[in-house]
Write a protein that binds this DNA or RNA. Sequence first.
DNA 1: TTGTACGCGTTATCAC
DNA 2: GTGATAACGCGTACAA
Lengths: 344, 344
Amino acid sequence: MKKKKVTFEDIAKYTNFSKTTISRYFNNPDSLTLENQEIIARALKELNYQENKVGRILASGKTEFVGIIIPDLYFHYYSEMLNQLLATYETYGYKFLVFAGSSHPDVERRYIRELLAYNIEGMIVLSHTISSEELASYGIPIVTIEREDRCTCSVNTDNYMGAVQACSLLYRNKCDVLIHINGDIAPEIPSRARINGFLDFCREHQIAHEWVLKDLSIDYEETSKILLEVVDYLNQKYPERKKGIFMPNDTHANVLLNVLVRKYGTLPPDYRIIGFDNSPISREAIIPTSTVGQQIETIAASAMELLVSRMNEQKKRKPSPLSEPIHRVISPVLIPRETCDFAG
Amino acid sequence: MKKKKVTFEDIAKYTNFSKTTISRYFNNPDSLTLENQEIIARALKELNYQENKVGRILASGKTEFVGIIIPDLYFHYYSEMLNQLLATYETYGYKFLVFAGSSHPDVERRYIRELLAYNIEGMIVLSHTISSEELASYGIPIVTIEREDRCTCSVNTDNYMGAVQACSLLYRNKCDVLIHINGDIAPEIPSRARINGFLDFCREHQIAHEWVLKDLSIDYEETSKILLEVVDYLNQKYPERKKGIFMPNDTHANVLLNVLVRKYGTLPPDYRIIGFDNSPISREAIIPTSTVGQQIETIAASAMELLVSRMNEQKKRKPSPLSEPIHRVISPVLIPRETCDFAG
DNA sequence: TTGTACGCGTTATCAC
DNA sequence: GTGATAACGCGTACAA
């Protein structure tokens, strides 16, 4: 069982053509006689030829590789995004080299160097670790998703609009006071707009509101404890008032919901809740939870479309100094469920 | 801004060494004078050399690529497995080309051909679509995880033991009748052993039991409806008896839990529940749910270790006809939580 | 310790 | 429509 791989050379000998012709058979078949195409096709079968793209890369410079750097696969948001990015293989044929980020800048720089060593044609970055300025400096097309994007192309959810939709739903649910529980987020991070949208909406509509400044972690028990305290605080501060709580994501909305249900046996009528993301947990919670749905498939498709157009520019034109960053914004979709009274 | 990449050639000219010496600097630095190493190191900085592994691949035949075919990233089990597989980059340096499988055999065959075209050195398969026999026929090292594995190396959870542990916990919780709600699973699928473990344990301990044969889908509402019917059925058939329910995974355990809590306001004392996987949902459920924890990190590490050893064999020895498949089994860990009375 | 020459599998540029 | 030849960037005998 010799593992000697069959090459164009072998096909050429076998068919009495030249390597060039074999190459053409793959890249420009129409330039061959139909007859000869069939001869070669047959030879490929008979010799059981296995395509080898490494040679092609070296000769053509095109790897059809795209690098992905994603911070984590814990949150469903990220794994679904990766899922949808990978799915674009069917559309564009780009293969994905994936690194799950480590939030250590130097480690991620090693990832990037490694990706560059394989001549990736472009990169999609979801990790927050490296500044967009540095990313841009690597000189290859890059699209970032939902992170700081001053110097890179990006696709983000319209977080501001999402927050406004969420608040609007709580408002229509006759909530007396709107609450947002979230850490302080740097202004350059897109999801910061959720806070801004919340604040602006409440001010514009002159609704009593409060941004409860709490950093909520990934740890369930810890978050649970914090949110229980927040509930006590809210009960004390806003007794007899209907509280509309806008949580920054569905995972934490679920923790809050559980805290309330475990405390009161059900979601008390003076609490309305809405989360963000439309993660599975929002449907699988003890009470199906209203949420602002991110259109992950659209975001992923849009990111790849943008990246592909950039990569094509790089190939065709000569100098093309990687024009101004393009920022795309995808509208979220309001999904009212049982943690609000009704959609209207 | 000419994009002309710096090559060994350039470094060689710049330093008055030959390409060979530059190459050696990377692959066998000790064979150079310390002095000369520094000269080259400096030149690399000054010319801003970017490693290019494509040439190396062509010359050496070693891509350091591993292909991953994963069925889906919806279930946390898979995304976490991918996470842990990617994390082994730090240990072995293999890069991962990832395809999210499509459950269409022909599509996955295209994926595999594409992977082979890039000379991947090995493959990790979680998808169930292609038979292990066909996988083995591709002639590269392959490790499968939690799927039919007759002809391939594999790493699986000890599903049988997991089921026994689950049943044992329910038994110690003084359940009168043990219930397992699951579809019929082909004997060659590892998770089939969960059913066998359930049945064997109950028979050996002479416990009343029933395998409720239901195919539960990924759809929450649909599953919810089915499980509500099952609950009615169980109430009727086993009134006044303490029912210990062993669910095949945490997602469905959560649906059942929600059905019960929504029906009774809490988990009735005559229902005990345990799931499988230790997914986040088991901790985030309205009542923290007992589960059989899969050691995903260990499984992933073990799979890569196995794969790496196989890939090394392929490189070193000449004929090495890819010896007999090795099957590794990782023990699960029982995690008792509030849906059971106590651990003892 | 260092250099020469060739090979890896494919594509691109010319010729014919 | 087809073929010879030279890249592409690096590794590796073999020679010095």
